[in-house]
Amino acid sequence: MVEVIVFFVCAAIVLGGAAGVIIARNPVHSALFLIQTLFGMAVLFISLEAHFLAAVQVVVYAGAIVILFLFVIMLLGVDQAEDLNIEPIVGQRFVAGILSLGIFFLVTASLVGSEDAITGARGSSGQIVDETVKPNVEQLAETLFTDYVFAFEATAILLTIAVVGAVVLARRTKGDMLDTPKNTLEIREENYQARIDARAAELEAEAAGNNSAAEAPDSAEAGDDLVDAADATDGGEA
């Protein structure tokens, strides 16, 4: 009874979170919905007696991976909302809906019969999921270092690649782009610089205004010009 309620509540949390991820217009919200799903998942893990995994789920997934997402979103300032009312590719949503429904129903249909099929399949790891015999963590550890020790070692390479890859891709580079006439970054930086200059001129004008009111308008005008120029460039870019 409790199990059933827990299941449905968690299922609702998980699916609701998932739906939130794909519906939320703002990526920050998506990330938060993702955390919701992950927490729901952790509870499901507990109900499946995978206690250690539940903990890992919260710590690693919600605590590290999603934070990484949020960090990047904030770093890049790409948290502007995506206009979900417009779908540029004709029929994409319809096709996506059909396909995901197709996957869901086909897999579900495959699952339904299999439960009753007496396969005789028992886990071959030799470790039985039973907390009364051994604690969950101990069982996990034993399997990890026996049957899956090679896979475990292989993850070392995977993590190295991830680190090297991130460094290679994310570091700043010298030299110009080779395949774009004038890359957008430079334009953005120019705009940025123009705004800064304009702001500096404004501040200067204010400071000057304290000393002699006569000089102020000129400086302010110069600043406005710069702002205008920046806006113009912006418009051009858009």
Binding site: V168, L169, T173, G175, M177, L178, D179, T180, N183
Partner: peptide, 12 residues
């Protein structure tokens, strides 16, 4: 994936 994107000075 990283190797493919390795040419950081090429948008392509």
């Amino acid at each position: 994936y990283v190797l493919a994107a390795m040419h950081v000075r090429k948008l392509q």
